[in-house]
Amino acid sequence: MIGLEVVFDVSVAVLLVVLALESLYTPNLFTSIAFFIAFGLVMALAWVRLQAPDLALAEAAVGAGLTGVLLLDAAREIAAVRGVERTPRSMVRLTSLLVAAGVGVALVAALLEVPPRAAGLAEAVREALPLTAVEHGVTSVLLDFRALDTFFETAVLLLAVITVLVLQAHQHVRIIPWELSASPVLSGLVGLLAPVVLVFSGYLLWAGTHAPGGAFQAGVLLGAGGILLELAGVHTVSRLPRRALRWLLSLGVAGFALLSGTLLLAGRGLLELPGAGARTIVIALEIAIAVSVALTVVSLVVGSNLRLEPPEQEP
């Protein structure tokens, strides 16, 4: 029955390429975004085929969901007015085709040289796993072996939010006015879903230590719940006082800074987790990251300076 798996893989691969082609080459922008969202979902399927459930969770929530929402909202504001699509001149399209084809051929040649049977760092991780605080390979790599990557990643998220908030302060980015009147059906659904989202993201966070899941997936899910609430007119994030919002947004980086600061003072490496209590540290760190990711997600999509009350003076 091996043939069936290959058939499934090849069909997912072909579907991915077809959706990418559709998304890149349809004239209408909204159709292009719709195909991009479908592409994101099939991408999640590809991650499942590659036995990477963590990535499938993240891809479905981030790749298809969040990026799709951001694109649709930007397209609604930009394309609606301009409408006409600037079709690139044929000369430019030809040269770009040649360059891309050249790169593609070079990469295929390189791919043929990649050894088909190699374990990479799989054994090294498996041997060192018992020494870490978590049992799940991906989470141990993210928060123990390569914790510096994740530290920088939370800083990158903070940077994105700062840039977006600076633009919102200029009133350049009109916050989505959500003409949607909070219809009873929507608030009914949100009323039902909010607790489920909360419990499920808590579960995802906890499961991260021994099964697929973890801080980022839980954070994005929590963020999606936050967006749903904002949509239904329950303004949670946009009503936060500015100082509290800034605290929560930078919680991920602050958590890492606090942890690594104490480790350095204790004479250990920058992110060399201590043997005892490492598990609680990792869980605390994951909660901090999840909260900051959730707030970042909501701020990126809904925007946080929907000042309903007059701007209060900072102390």
């Binding site: 036995q51 981030v62 049977r117 190699a118 991780v125 991906v138 993210l142 072996f145 990557d149 990643e153």
Partner: peptide, 23 residues
């Protein structure tokens, strides 16, 4: 690249790809 071995995938590329998605 993480899927080139019989017994289970190599978690390092998975973690790096997660970071890549977020970035």
């Amino acid at each position: 690249l993480a899927h080139r071995h019989a017994d289970g995938p190599d978690p390092v590329p998975h973690a790096l790809a997660l970071t890549g998605i977020v970035v």
